[in-house]
Each structure stands twice: as structure tokens, then as C-alpha cells.
């Protein structure tokens, strides 16, 4: 489904991803872990098509197509979803209007008629249940005045609504209490179908108690330095990242945390 080969990415001349490789197949859940500043969000942004980053070399194919050639909105319409680490507020734009525009643009892409108001509201209600998001949130402007946790839940709500083929969640678990964490996990698990896949970027092992990944990768200094199964995450939690750095033969100073 997603194949990344030897990807090198920089911003303003600063190299961030340095020979990154990853292959995600339908039906799989991958977890990417790594210390702050290792390039996790950069990876997610590049896959989603953020043009502030420069792809210096490498290949990314998504469902057999050259992903790097596709404009970001087309990537989204083709089923790619990014749960943002820092969801942005859009004042004055109601969640309802936003979601309705998004779903109908996607439907148009597939030659489908736009949803009627009734159909749309029904779908809204259905999906709201999955993430236990309250009407008071969907009645507001996009992310405006949402707490950190509410913003994250809103990302999962949008994911549930848009039913992506490949979801990339960038630290959606950070700053959540256990209940919210379960909601996020439920959202991801509900999406799990043989045709879909997810990449869960996380800082902590905690989320992986609720989402069982098929693979865990450790990202360090712009490349994957270790891959394994769920046990790797537990090991990381116990030993910290220092161990990985040593094992990877990288002798650098500890990463500063932001």
C-alpha cells in the first residue's frame, strides 16, 4: 500500500530524513517511535504533501502510484489521512460545513453525488458515537476553543468520518488521559479492515496497550534504526532510547527534548 524507498528530506538545507525506508501493506498497523526531533512529524508531513519540505531523493509509492507527484488534496481524496500533532484552528468555519465540504469533495472525486443534508447529518451522528465526541464540539468552528484532548478526539472523529485507506496518526495520544486514549484506540481499531492500514506515530508505549501493532519501528536521526514486534515497544519503554542509539552505533549527544 505504501512503499518508501531511501527517502531524503530537508528543510532550508537542513537534512531531516536520511535514507528512510518503510513498507506498509494492507491490513497492517505500524507504530513509529522515536525521540523528539528524530523526524516523525516530518515524515508524516511529507507523506501528506506539505510543500515546505524538500524531497531531495527517494521514492514513495501509494497504491501503486507515485505519491510525490500527487497534490495534497488528491492524496487525501485517494484515502490518505493525517491526524495532525498540532491541529490548527479555523475560526468561523463550522465543523459541519468543513466536514460536509470534505466528504462531498471526496465523493465528487469518485463520481458520487454529494450527500444531502439529511444523509450528512445521519452520518455525523453515527460517527460521533464512535469517538464519543459531543455535539457541542461539532457545532463549533473547526478546533476553535477546543482543549488539547478535544482537538485530538476531533482528529479521530474526522478520520472515522472520512474512512481513509491509510491513516497516519502523529502523536494523537500525547497529552490524553486514559479515557481519551481509549477513544483514540477505538477509532483506530474500528478502521482496521483487511484493505486498510495505519501508521501510528507515538512517543509512548502506552497507546500500544490498546492498539496492537504488527510492527514497531524506531526512528532516530532521520532513519529507522530498529524494527520489531510489539515487544520492541515494551523494551523501549523500559530501557529508554539511549540503548537504541548505542545499538545503532550512533555516538551522538542525547537529543534535547523540546
Amino acid at each position: 500500500m505504501l512503499k518508501i524507498k531511501d527517502l531524503n528530506v530537508s528543510i532550508n538545507g537542513k537534512k531531516i530524513l536520511k535514507g528512510f525506508n518503510l513498507e506498509v501493506n494492507a491490513g497492517e498497523v505500524h507504530a513509529i517511535m522515536g525521540p523528539n526531533g528524530s523526524g516523525k512529524s516530518t515524515l508524516a508531513s511529507v507523506i501528506a504533501g506539505r510543500d515546505i519540505f524538500t524531497v531531495d531523493s527517494g521514492e514513495v509509492t501509494y497504491m501503486g502510484k507515485n505519491l510525490l507527484d500527487m497534490p495534497p488534496d488528491e492524496r487525501a481524496k485517494e484515502g490518505l489521512f493525517l491526524g495532525f500533532q498540532y491541529p490548527v484552528e479555523i475560526p468561523g468555519v463550522s465543523m459541519i460545513n468543513f466536514m460536509r465540504t470534505a466528504i462531498n469533495e471526496k465523493r465528487k472525486h469518485y463520481g458520487l453525488e454529494p450527500l444531502t443534508g439529511m444523509e450528512f447529518m445521519k452520518l455525523m451522528e453515527e460517527k460521533k458515537k464512535i469517538v464519543e465526541i459531543q455535539s457541542k464540539l461539532t457545532n463549533r468552528s473547526v478546533n476553535e476553543g477546543f482543549s488539547g484532548g478535544e482537538k485530538k478526539k476531533n482528529e479521530i472523529f474526522q478520520m472515522a468520518f472520512l474512512e481513509p485507506k491509510l491513516a497516519i496518526l502523529d502523536e494523537t495520544d500525547s497529552g490524553l488521559d486514559i479515557d481519551a486514549l481509549k477513544v483514540v484506540a477505538n477509532g483506530v481499531n474500528a478502521l482496521k479492515k483487511p484493505d486498510n492500514a495505519s501508521v501510528v506515530i507515538t512517543h509512548y508505549q502506552r497507546l500500544l496497550d490498546y492498539i496492537v501493532p504488527d510492527f514497531v519501528h524506531v526512528l532516530y536521526d532521520g532513519r529507522i534504526v530498529k524494527s520489531g514486534s510489539k515487544e520492541l515497544a515494551i523494551e523501549l519503554e523500559e530501557k529508554g532510547y539511549e540503548w537504541i542509539k548505542k545499538e545503532a552505533g550512533i555516538n551522538e549527544k542525547a537529543e534535547s527534548t523540546e
Binding site: A48, G49, R50, P71, P72, D73, R75, A76, K77, F81, L82, F84, P87, V88, I90, F98, T101, A102, E105, K106, H109, V142, Q158, L162
Partner: peptide, 9 residues
């Protein structure tokens, strides 16, 4: 970008 990522052109 947030809008684009949701498939809105």
C-alpha cells in the same frame, strides 16, 4: 494545509 489534507482543494 489542514483543509487540503481533508481532501478540500
Amino acid at each position: 494545509f489542514y483543509c487540503l489534507q481533508r481532501g478540500i482543494d
